[in-house]
Design a binder for these strands. Structure first.
Lengths: 210, 210
DNA sequence: TTGACCCTAGTCAAATTTGACCAGTGATCC
DNA sequence: GGATCACTGGTCAAATTTGACTAGGGTCAA
């Protein structure tokens, strides 16, 4: 699973109604072009595809404001809302060592109730531990890890990465349980989209290197 | 960059001469189907594509041993060898937070001279540090990180991940400088391919979960 | 006033990736 | 002795991703 569907669904949902360029702009505002595969082609493709699958409702507008091809505005459907939550839950709970998916999920995590967010992160911990165990048990030959030669370094990398992921997840759980942030049903949600006409402070900056 | 080209080039190179299924088997032996996008379709596609680009030399054989479509055997060309080294060096030095690419690179690192491997890992450290700095500098708003709300957790994740990557890289450099493993030009290289007829101890096991 | 840019809003072909499927061969089971 | 299952060695269509390109309009200085 790539992060693009989650990002695009989330952007359309937060906007209420958006055309491709707005989504593209939001993702740039979030810096997503730096840490995910949010290229224009991918975004427009995802929009069209999800509209075809009933996750979004598309409405073609006349090319009024400017020249160029006619714009299409999208709204999220009920099925899209469900898919959004499904993707979000999956991204939080699974350990697939993909920072882009996890980053996107963290950005949307407050769309869930606080208790559920914590429960999903705990599930993440369980899967991380299971993975760590299976790596150490499964890939260690009888003669000890030295038998593997430099290949053992790959295992080392994985275990190290699992431990780092564990630590970060624990910290996040702690902060959430400690009352940080505003989750679903707790008041004014955090707004992360650009209003119409608002300039993007992060646009085309001398940004994070790829 | 995905890891598939590096993996396939490396497999063909180690084999000297290999057909698609052998490559597929080697990658499974290395567990690559667990941690990279090494599906059959990707492997066969990469072989054909790289043959078209002159990185591999293809030779069609009669469908002798078994039925089914005629097999194609591949050998690495000089251009392929250069591309292999280029991909390997790039994968070691760049910080793109993709575990699959890094894992593949670690698996092949002993194809380089020891000193070069260390130098590439040092470059990796430099880029990691640069990334960490740009994240903390660029994404912190004037009012302090609290302004970001839960979005700050994404930054937190990145910094945490950069620090973990730094630590692992430092450890690896230390072990390599301490004389571990056998690098290019230092004697018998580590053999990581399945000989003809050798059974694959890791095939279709109850493997690491995805 | 025109040429050099940038901004908006996308399109498109090519490359890659996914996941399902296919067609022989050989072994095993009952 | 026929069914079935696993292994070998792939193919193929569909989905996705990439990266370059398009086209109209505005701005701004020479």
């Amino acid at each position: 699973m790539s992060a693009i569907r989650l990002l695009v669904l989330g952007a359309v949902k937060q906007h209420g109604r958006a055309h491709g360029y707005q989504v593209r702009n939001d993702l740039e505002y979030w810096g997503a072009h730096e840490w995910s595969n949010a290229k224009p082609g991918s975004i427009y493709h995802a929009l069209k595809q999800m509209a075809k699958q009933g996750l979004l409702r598309a409405e073609e507008l006349a090319p009024s404001t400017a020249g160029g091809p006619p714009r299409v505005e999208y709204e999220i459907t009920e099925a899209g809302r469900e898919e959004y939550l499904r993707l979000l839950r999956e991204a939080l709970a699974t350990y697939d060592q993909r920072m882009d998916v996890l980053s996107a999920a963290v950005g949307f995590v407050v769309d869930l109730p606080r208790a559920e967010a914590v429960e999903l992160l705990r599930e993440r911990l369980r899967r991380l531990d299971a993975w760590r165990t299976s790596v150490t048990e499964y890939y260690v030959p009888e003669g000890g890890p030295e038998q593997l030669g430099h290949i053992g370094e790959i295992m080392h990398l994985w275990v190290h990465s699992a431990d780092a992921g564990r630590e970060w997840t624990l910290g996040l759980i702690e902060r959430i349980e400690g009352g940080a942030y505003t989750f679903a049903g707790e008041g004014e949600p955090f707004v992360g989209v650009l209003a119409e006409g608002q300039e993007n402070p992060y646009a085309t900056g001398d940004a994070v290197e790829d």
